[in-house]
Simulated assay, not measured.
Amino acid sequence: MESAYFTHVWGRENVTVRERYEQLWQELEAADRLGFDYAFSVEHHCTPHESWMPSPAVFCTGAALRTERIRVGPMGWVPPLRHPLHVVEEVATLDQLLGGRLEVGLASGVSEQPFLPFRADFAGRKVLNRECADLLRTALTAEGPFDFDGPAHQLKNVELSFGARQRPHPPLWIPTTDRNTLRYLARTGGHTSSTMIVPRAAMGLVYRHYIDWWREEGQPGLPRIGYWSLVHVAETDAEAEARAAEQVTDTFVNTLRYGSVKRSGTPAAPASRLSTPDILAGSGDFRFLMDQNLVFVGSPRTVAERIRAAASEGLFNTVLGEFAFGDIAGAESIASMELFSREVMPLLAEFTPYQPEQTDESHVAVSRTTGIRVP
């Protein structure tokens, strides 16, 4: 199990943009020092109530200047908003600045709203996203000038000023649970991720196929599969919940603006029977989120147990933890990261959720601490 520091760089009242970014650089320095494997951010536009990160290049450049070992990237660039050659050139430049530590996430986009100011093609976003991935591989593996014939962009006799540091190219991620896209990723050696609003039972089913396809293609090892959620660690469960409860629900309801959807099931339905509308509708109820193990809040042992249980169901092997949310920021979020690094990471270090030989319930126990099923 690997661990990522994830940030939307959410804006805050009474904090300037410069101050918010200085908090970000301090958090990145801490993630680097504490042994997190990755640092990921987003590309969001025109969202004053939410993310203040419109530029993955700024995030990666800041990380290049303030970190030494952690792998860094967006999760991800939104290629449909620009010419894909712009993304290719940024990838090459940032990988050089980072000394070969860049991870490349490409996100097709979920909502049409961010596409409107750019008059970008929302309907064709998935085609454009894959086209960008294809162009990245073509351009960064070329020795000299190259041609490219994509569904929307055609290039003839183009030569980059310089290539990426990593060969043949930096690792690629496309967040998805779409089977066709996962087949494409298995064929091309790309990684993926999802979020806590996607039911983990469905994730586990489709990601098991993805892993099988990966192996059928002869790819080395296992693909990286990320899972995003909010994380807060304190010395005790009571302390963590008391501090995080209001900040968790405020983030989901007022920042991300979940919660306007009606549940399709019952509030007490087990996570295996939840739908995305159920999760969204329950996002303003902290007890619902905890009971369904949708956020990772508690003491180090509790958080480790929660992650193990969630990963066993959803088959993810990389925690994309958002530690700075609501008014939990700066030194407080870093203190949570420190506990996670010191006491949670060691408990997860040897854990892998993909165990194809386990086909029955005899390998599952129930934690006395949390009541959560863990392998």
Score class of each variant (00 low, 15 high):
R208V: 03
T138D: 00
E239L: 11
M345D: 04
P300L: 11
R373A: 15
L280Y: 14
F316V: 12
Y207G: 02
E246G: 00
T7N: 06
P114E: 01
E357A: 15
T302H: 08
V110W: 12
L128N: 06
L280T: 13
A365D: 11
G204V: 03
G218C: 00
E43S: 10
A142M: 10
P114G: 00
A310T: 09
P220T: 08
V158M: 08
A57D: 13
E305T: 02
T138I: 04
L185P: 09
T7K: 07
Q358H: 07
G189R: 02
E216W: 12
R257N: 14
T359S: 07
A202I: 12
T249Q: 06
E90V: 01
D147F: 09
E305L: 13
P145I: 00
V261D: 10
R273T: 15
D178F: 01
E43H: 13
F340W: 15
L160S: 12
E143V: 10
S264L: 14
F36N: 10
D285S: 03
V297S: 06
R342Y: 08
L24R: 02
Y184T: 11
R82H: 14
I211N: 02
Y5K: 02
S312M: 11
V58I: 15
M1D: 02
G265P: 04
A186M: 13
S367W: 04
E29H: 08
S283W: 03
H209L: 01
L136P: 03
T359N: 07
R373P: 14
S333R: 01
E103G: 07
S336I: 04
T251N: 02
V206N: 02
V295E: 08
R119N: 15
A39M: 11
A57P: 08
V364F: 04
P79D: 05
G321T: 09
T352D: 11
Q96V: 14
E246Y: 01
L81S: 05
T195E: 02
L320W: 02
M290F: 00
E313L: 15
Q96G: 07
A4S: 14
E90Y: 05
A133S: 02
E305P: 01
T177P: 00
V15C: 10
F36E: 09
S299R: 09
G218T: 11
A240P: 05
L222N: 06
R119K: 07
F296Q: 14
M196H: 15
A238C: 01
G371T: 09
T141K: 05
L222Y: 06
L65K: 14
N254S: 12
D121H: 03
M337C: 04
K156E: 09
E361W: 13
E90T: 09
E239N: 07
H191I: 04
T47F: 00
